[in-house]
Amino acid sequence: MQIEASALSVERGGRIIFADLGFRLEAGEALRVNGPNGAGKSTLLKAIAGLLPLAAGKIEIAPASEVRRAELCHYVGHADALKPNLTAFENLAFLAALLVTSAARPGVAAVEAALERLGLSAVADLPAAYLSAGQKRRAGLARLVAVDRPIWLLDEPLTALDAPAQAVILEIMAAHITAGGVIVVATHTDLPIGTADLALGRAAHR
């Protein structure tokens, strides 16, 4: 799995967020996107995920396949996609059923294992509305473990997490890279895993 972006440019609401951006990631590499607030980190991740149209440039994935780019990517944004009146387990089971693309559909056990990995077994049967901010974040990240997709696009994944949970997420990210996956992560904190850096410079206000 290799992803190469060249001359990317994205417009939102008639304004150019960033232009002429490029990077290249081989299997097992991670890219850390940093820059001031409003520099376009989230916009870049959404554009890679195929959720925003590109004004210019292209994103190529090798080996080429007929699968849409969006179906190869996990995108974890600021919103956790949790329904407040469903339990953590029901939320994750639905997202796993929705997102899984492989012919061999994972079982309910994979969902339980993902919740356990993120330390949510004790609150799996609680409605998501009762979870704390950090627990919601963990429940949102649990789909990375439950559903196998090669490209991870993580927007501030460590926000609201306590130190042990941050360590677990970093472990999961390191394991994904070791297994030949690709990660693009937007964060302000330094990561202990090996990453290339992509700095988005221009601040939004002008």
Binding site: K83, L86, F94, P106, G107, V108, A113
Partner: peptide, 25 residues
Amino acid sequence: MKQNGAPLPSPLGALLVRDLKIGRR
């Protein structure tokens, strides 16, 4: 990936069940 446990439902079936649950709850 672990294979034990009941398989997950199809995406559309899961969506129908989810929306009905949300509406009722």
